[in-house]
Nucleic acid binder design. Structure first.
Lengths: 136, 136
DNA sequence: TATATTGTACTAAGGTATTAGTACAATATA
DNA sequence: TATATTGTACTAATACCTTAGTACAATATA
C-alpha cells in the first residue's frame, strides 16, 4: 500500500449557520480542492479522527464522505481511508453539458432576481479568472 | 388606484417533483420575469384566486409572495394585491456585488466539483447571452 | 359606512432531514 | 491468525420544513 499524502486541513463547524454538518464538511473539502490545498490522491482525515476533532458522530462524517463518493469527488475503501479521486473521468461531455446547463439556469435565475444581468456575471467571472484562478 | 396590467399566466404545480409548492410558484414568477412575460408593475394573481386555481391553501401562495417581497421581487399591499417591483432600486451596487460574489462562489464550487472549469462556464454563458437573451 | 376584496396570523399535522447510539464489517498489517 | 484501523448498517430522537385549517386585518370602493 502506497502511503498517500495526508495533509493537515483544519475543518471547522458552525452550529449556528443552519447548514447541516455533513454539508459543511463537503463544502470545505470542495473549497480545498478548488484552491489547490487538496488534490488527486490526497487522503482525507479518517471518519473517526475527524469525528473526534469536530466532536460529532462518526456517521455524520461518513455521510459527507459517502455523498462525495457518489458525486465522484472521493474514493473510499474500508480499512484504508478516503482519498481525493482521480479527475472525474466518469463524467461524459454530454452529461457535463447537462449539469452545466442546469447549474447555469439556476444561477442565472437567481442573479436575475437580484437585478444582475448576464453581462455583469460574465464580466465578474472573467475578472475572477484573470486575477485569481481557482484551479491550481 | 391605477389598474395595473393583470396578465394571464398559467401556473402549474408538480406534486411529484419534491420541490415545495411555494418554491415552484416563486420559480415560475422568476422565470416569467426573466423572459419578459412579467415586468415592473404587473399584478400577480391574488392569493385566493391562485390558491383556487392550483387547489392548494391560500397560505401557501401567501408564503411564496412573502418570500418574494423579502427578496424585493414584488410589492404586496393588503386589499390591493401583489405587483412586480420597480426594478430593485433598493439594492446598492455594493450590496449587489456582495450577492453576486456569493452566488458566483457557490456556483463555481459546484461546477468545479463536476470538473467544469471557469473557461467552460464563461464560454457557455457567452453563447447563451448571444443566442437567446434571457432579458426582454 | 357597509361590503367586497385583498393579504395575514396563529396553530397544528404530517413528513423529511439531520444527527447520534450502538453494534458491525472490511481491510491492512504485525 | 490476531489485532488495529478503516468505514458502515440500522435504528431512533429531535428538529425543521411544508402545508392546511381557521379566523382575522387592512384596503378599496359602492
Amino acid at each position: 500500500m502506497v502511503m498517500e499524502e495526508q495533509k493537515s486541513l483544519s475543518f471547522t463547524l458552525d452550529p449556528k449557520s443552519g447548514v447541516p454538518y455533513y454539508k459543511q464538511v463537503i463544502l470545505q473539502v470542495e473549497m480545498a480542492i478548488a484552491d489547490g490545498r487538496l488534490t488527486t490522491g490526497d487522503q482525507l482525515p479518517t471518519v473517526r479522527s475527524l469525528a473526534v476533532d469536530l466532536k460529532i458522530n462518526p456517521n455524520t462524517i461518513s455521510r459527507a464522505y459517502r455523498e462525495m463518493e457518489i458525486r465522484g469527488i472521493v474514493n473510499t475503501q474500508q480499512g484504508t481511508g478516503t482519498f481525493i479521486s482521480e479527475k472525474e473521468i466518469e463524467i461524459s461531455a454530454v452529461e457535463r453539458e447537462k449539469i452545466l446547463a442546469s447549474l447555469v439556469r439556476d444561477f442565472v435565475i437567481k442573479a436575475n432576481s437580484y437585478g444582475i444581468d448576464m453581462d455583469q456575471v460574465i464580466d465578474y467571472l472573467q475578472e475572477m479568472r484573470d486575477n485569481e484562478p481557482l484551479k491550481a
